[in-house]
């Protein structure tokens, strides 16, 4: 989940494993040093992301973000992600119906197919899978772009031109990623239900009308949609912060860019699952 930074404790751990010093500290010391090193690196990452968030919010509060960059990134991140979201959402809806098919057939519960597919899709599956897809496509790409700009001194060039890289580059990307995930989740919700309805008709003979009646009969309401959308907003925050943070922290040329992308993908995915649990727990599913 967390990129490993060097720390005094980690260095101590490395030193304790060298042959000439192996006799002195025991396995427990090594374990504790490694644990401490891991904790420090996690704190370093969390701290870095928090500082970056504060800087971004300061620019947003003063409307110091570049409008052209925002539109450009919205197009690149949202519009160009549509094909992958369409495929993911349609097949997600279809899979939900296939999973429910056995029970629906056994109990003749065709009227509940809409609710069964909609409940899981709107509250959980659509936001989660859309976030993972967008993380792989947009988050990784964003880190690679920023990381390359850092190692080729393009960010330094912006600073020398008296242009604030946070306002010009980072804040528009942050807003674009959070907005993209929110919009794509809304879009995925609709498409997944569409896919589920027509898969229900093809596999189970349940008409789309029956499907949508089950969806709107009172068992589901706007709160279920809002639940999923709130999750997508939280996922967007962690994904945007992780991708920008690791991109800006890139060092070491092309291999460094690779490491930064890897850190973004791992941190975003782990963060999405952890936050999904916490948000589900906090707002009741």
């Amino acid at each position: 989940m967390i990129r490993v930074y060097s720390s005094p404790l980690a260095t101590m751990a490395a030193q304790t494993t060298t042959p000439e010093k192996a006799a002195a500290p025991g396995a427990l010391t090594t374990f504790l040093a490694a644990l401490g090193g891991g904790f420090l690196s996690a704190a370093h990452t969390a701290g870095g992301m928090t500082i970056l968030l504060v800087k971004i919010l300061a620019r947003l509060a003063r409307l110091r973000l570049d409008g052209r960059e925002l539109w450009k990134n919205l197009y690149k991140m949202a519009v160009k992600s549509l094909p992958i979201v369409v495929v993911t959402a349609l097949f997600t809806g279809a899979i939900m119906v296939i999973q429910a098919a056995t029970i629906v057939k056994r109990y003749g519960a065709e009227g509940l197919l809409g609710w069964g597919a909609g409940f899981g899709t709107l509250r959980e599956i659509a936001p989660l899978l859309t976030a993972l897809m967008i993380s792989g496509r947009v988050g990784a790409n964003n880190t690679a772009e920023l990381g390359t700009m850092v190692v080729t001194e393009q960010l330094d060039a912006l600073r020398v031109l008296a242009i604030d890289p946070i306002g010009f580059l980072i804040a528009p990307r942050f807003v674009a990623i959070v907005s993209t995930l929110f919009m794509m989740t809304l879009f995925a919700d609709a498409l997944a239900l569409f896919g589920a309805a027509y898969t229900g008709q093809a596999l189970l003979g349940v008409s789309p009308t029956t499907f949508f009646n089950g969806l709107t009969a009172g068992l589901l309401d706007f709160g279920d949609v809002a639940n999923g959308l709130f999750k997508s907003f939280v996922f967007g925050l962690v994904m945007a912060l992780a991708s920008c943070h690791f991109g800006l922290a890139t060092t070491g040329g092309a291999p460094g860019v690779g490491r930064a992308v890897n850190s973004t993908v791992v941190t975003s995915a782990a963060g999405i699952f952890v936050l999904d649990y916490l948000v589900s727990f906090a707002i009741g599913g």
Binding site: M149, T152, E153, Q154, D156, A157
Partner: peptide, 15 residues
């Protein structure tokens, strides 16, 4: 920095 112009070693052109 408004007073500065700078050429970087690796040019730092915006890709």
């Amino acid at each position: 920095r408004l007073k500065f112009g700078m050429l970087f070693q690796n040019n730092a052109l915006f890709d």
